[in-house]
Amino acid sequence: MSAPEQTREDARAIWQAGVDAVGGYNAVTRALNEGPAERPDQIVAVGKAAAAMTRAALDHFGPLPALVVTKDGHGEGLPTDVTLIESAHPVPDERSLDAGRALRECVAGMTADSHLLLLVSGGASALAEDLTEGNTLDDLAALNRSLLASGKDITEMNVERRKISRIKGGGLLSAFAGATAQVLAISDVPGDDIAVIGSGIGALPPTPNFAATTRIVASNTHARDAALAEAERRGYRILTTGEELHGDLEALASDWGPRLCGMEKGAIILGGEPTVRLPDNPGQGGRNQALALALSRHIKGRDDITLIVGGTDGNDGPTDAAGGIVDGSTWTDSAQDALNRADSGSYLADNNALLTTGPTGTNVMDLLIALRC
């Protein structure tokens, strides 16, 4: 195997090690084994990792009533007696409203002595909603489309989403009349704040009338730590690691492009979630594909650097790809036009540079792996 081929294989393996370490099944299993974990009367799970998290809880406790709300195609592997609702992401649809009502009715219908296990992961903001009076699905969809194109970060977006929601920002658990609630969350937001994850669908109300615990069971930090360990195992010296991928995509590319071009032999491992402003009528792709392509400009012609930028959930924006895997051969004369049209996905597909994984069972923002051999 040539050096570039080996570096490409190493980059993908290191990225995957980070993702595997924060898988919903493994994260919930670890948390429940560490205890204490009272057997719940009801499991409620919402988010892209909801199915994997629920499978872990069922394997730990045995059969239990469970309601799972997740993205289309992300509900595989659940027992047939689990109530599964698959809905839309990143722009909600009518099923998202059905899912939101089902969540609220399930939680509100529990008895006074009951125990709830609530499993939360990224994607919940679009997957489930119960709107405040006077707001419609069209209002919700328009808000989400506007936010996705706005360049706002996830914290700013979720503030806006909570304003028209009955179940976000502590609203869901405000309907809970039971005795105890345990919330286990996989964080896809900076700072790992339960009030921000899924727009606060797992947050406690201001004055809960029940005993409650909340815990973050997986985060971008955990993913980066695992990727770092795999990079070292494969013989790479760690040059830089941190949660540095926040902010405007173009600014990140301008900052990190020259640094990647000038990197020494070794590995750079970064996490975060870039923001992007979209033109009218954007093409195919998402922020990870766009960032990977923009960075490839700076390593054009190099045969010793390979770069992956990918969403840990396996989806980059409204696409089935996780991101891009690029090297010195990726950038050509037509690349800038693709970026301008927000069509990086089409360009990367044509140049054998898409990173495609399928659903990963987790969601802890994005990972960048850069290797120089």
Score class of each variant (00 low, 15 high):
residue 312 T to M: 11
residue 333 D to F: 12
residue 337 D to N: 06
residue 335 A to G: 12
residue 318 P to M: 10
residue 347 Y to P: 05
residue 313 D to L: 07
residue 332 T to N: 03
residue 301 G to A: 04
residue 331 W to I: 01
residue 358 G to C: 07
residue 353 A to V: 04
residue 353 A to N: 01
residue 366 D to A: 15
residue 365 M to I: 15
residue 314 G to Q: 15
residue 305 I to D: 03
residue 360 T to E: 14
residue 341 R to A: 12
residue 305 I to C: 10
residue 302 R to V: 10
residue 325 I to Y: 00
residue 301 G to E: 04
residue 351 N to T: 15
residue 337 D to F: 07
residue 313 D to A: 14
residue 360 T to M: 15
residue 340 N to A: 11
residue 329 S to W: 07
residue 324 G to C: 07
residue 353 A to G: 04
residue 341 R to E: 12
residue 308 I to R: 01
residue 340 N to W: 09
residue 300 K to W: 08
residue 363 N to S: 08
residue 304 D to V: 08
residue 313 D to Y: 14
residue 342 A to D: 06
residue 335 A to R: 08
residue 319 T to W: 13
residue 314 G to Y: 12
residue 342 A to F: 13
residue 334 S to N: 09
residue 299 I to T: 13
residue 342 A to S: 09
residue 326 V to Y: 07
residue 311 G to A: 10
residue 348 L to M: 00
residue 319 T to E: 11
residue 351 N to E: 15
residue 304 D to S: 09
residue 354 L to H: 03
residue 350 D to I: 08
residue 308 I to V: 13
residue 318 P to V: 14
residue 341 R to V: 06
residue 312 T to N: 11
residue 356 T to D: 00
residue 349 A to I: 10
residue 309 V to T: 01
residue 337 D to H: 06
residue 326 V to I: 13
residue 352 N to I: 10
residue 314 G to D: 11
residue 350 D to E: 04
residue 365 M to F: 15
residue 333 D to G: 13
residue 344 S to Q: 06
residue 331 W to G: 03
residue 301 G to L: 15
residue 366 D to R: 14
residue 327 D to V: 14
residue 301 G to S: 07
residue 343 D to I: 09
residue 321 A to Y: 15
residue 320 D to M: 02
residue 352 N to K: 05
residue 334 S to V: 11
residue 348 L to Y: 00
residue 305 I to N: 10
residue 329 S to M: 10
residue 323 G to H: 01
residue 334 S to E: 10
residue 303 D to R: 04
residue 304 D to K: 07
residue 325 I to A: 08
residue 346 S to N: 13
residue 350 D to H: 06
residue 361 G to K: 08
residue 363 N to D: 03
residue 354 L to V: 00
residue 329 S to F: 14
residue 363 N to P: 05
residue 312 T to C: 14
residue 344 S to I: 07
residue 355 L to T: 00
residue 332 T to F: 07
residue 305 I to Y: 07
residue 306 T to Q: 07
residue 301 G to N: 02
